[in-house]
Amino acid sequence: MKLKDLYSFLKKDLQQIEHQLAVSVSSDQPMIHTAGMELLKAGGKRIRPVFVLLSAQFGTYNIHQVKKPAAALELIHMASLVHDDVVDDADMRRGRETVKAKYDSKIAMYTGDYIFAAALKLMTDIEIPRAHQILAQGMKEMCLGEIEQINEQFDTDQNIRKYFKRIKRKTALLIALSCQLGAITSKADVSLQKMLYEFGYCVGMAFQITDDILDFTASEKQLGKPAGSDLKQGNITLPALFTICKYPEFKEKLNLYYQNKDSELLAELLKDIKSLGGIEYASRISEKYLNRAKKAARSLPDTDARDSLLKVADYIACRKF
């Protein structure tokens, strides 16, 4: 089953989100306009808008109101990816040329900034101060997560606790805020807002851990980039961290790889992570977060929206790319 089939009753509302995204990234400046439209055409799962809309179902649902934070959160996600590609010097994303590769780093950075500004402009229509406070704090945390990733790049002495803190800031937080802001915008009960935040946080953690597993297990065609790209770039994720902690000889081999960047040694490292239990460990942790997410969702009122949240959690658990 495709992801969009899990919330098919939102199809018309999601079309409005797509229209809002197109309006928001449009510009009189041709290069920014073209880059923004190309980013939209590249697609994506639109997980964050979906969680905003589903969470808003637990309050007074008004698509004309809720589409603003739904589109804003997707724009923030898009902008962060544009900036990530500059930092990572990435030429490809989802099998397509990045803005940084097609134009240059300066254009990419300003395109990202423009999209961030478009997101903030959309949020001005939401006259709920708490929503703005939460989003602003969330964006600060995201920036800290990115800086932490840069500081911890190639660091084989980092621990798993740091990894969890980093992925919370980089990925889980924005998904948690999607659920929380959907509920806040629709004026859902505060207790439901808290449960939805917990659901989003746990799903976000599982989503990122699954991404990190797929970097080792999926094909280049599925990923849109070579397998093992994170490790190669010095982003040491959970499967590798587990292997480092359990097997000192793996850590020595990894440090040697970072010194000489030998492709045959990288291939050995990828095999070691699979054979020494790194994938299995990360999968167990992902499953624990998913179980927490499902527990939170089951505490919500029994509605189509709750069923969709549970199905999305299951989808994340078994996705292959």
Score class of each variant (00 low, 15 high):
residue 195 M to R: 13
residue 277 G to W: 09
residue 288 K to T: 15
residue 56 A to P: 08
residue 274 K to H: 11
residue 40 L to H: 02
residue 34 T to Q: 15
residue 58 F to N: 02
residue 196 L to G: 06
residue 103 Y to E: 14
residue 232 K to H: 14
residue 25 V to Y: 11
residue 35 A to H: 03
residue 145 G to W: 02
residue 112 G to Y: 09
residue 69 P to F: 02
residue 265 L to C: 06
residue 268 E to S: 10
residue 281 Y to P: 00
residue 59 G to K: 01
residue 24 S to E: 10
residue 133 Q to A: 09
residue 277 G to D: 08
residue 73 L to P: 02
residue 6 L to K: 01
residue 24 S to H: 09
residue 228 G to S: 08
residue 272 D to L: 11
residue 251 K to S: 13
residue 76 I to M: 07
residue 127 E to T: 12
residue 290 L to P: 01
residue 17 I to H: 05
residue 222 Q to P: 00
residue 160 I to K: 15
residue 160 I to S: 14
residue 66 V to R: 01
residue 132 H to M: 11
residue 76 I to P: 01
residue 103 Y to A: 11
residue 86 V to F: 11
residue 202 C to Q: 15
residue 158 Q to W: 02
residue 178 S to P: 01
residue 278 G to Q: 05
residue 226 P to F: 04
residue 191 S to D: 12
residue 225 K to I: 05
residue 211 D to K: 06
residue 18 E to M: 01
residue 126 I to P: 08
residue 294 K to L: 11
residue 314 D to T: 11
residue 3 L to H: 09
residue 271 K to A: 15
residue 63 I to P: 02
residue 63 I to V: 09
residue 265 L to M: 10
residue 207 F to K: 03
residue 11 K to W: 00
residue 197 Y to K: 07
residue 58 F to Y: 05
residue 287 E to C: 11
residue 96 R to A: 12
residue 117 A to E: 02
residue 59 G to I: 01
residue 207 F to P: 05
residue 160 I to C: 13
residue 60 T to C: 08
residue 127 E to N: 13
residue 14 L to S: 03
residue 47 I to M: 15
residue 169 R to M: 13
residue 225 K to Q: 01
residue 1 M to C: 10
residue 231 L to C: 03
residue 269 L to K: 06
residue 72 A to F: 06
residue 104 D to A: 06
residue 239 P to L: 10
residue 12 K to D: 14
residue 264 E to Y: 01
residue 245 C to K: 13
residue 319 R to M: 13
residue 306 R to G: 07
residue 154 F to L: 02
residue 53 L to R: 01
residue 256 L to H: 13
residue 14 L to F: 04
residue 23 V to I: 15
residue 162 K to C: 10
residue 227 A to C: 08
residue 229 S to H: 04
residue 317 A to Y: 08
residue 303 T to D: 04
residue 188 A to K: 04
residue 272 D to P: 07
residue 221 K to V: 15
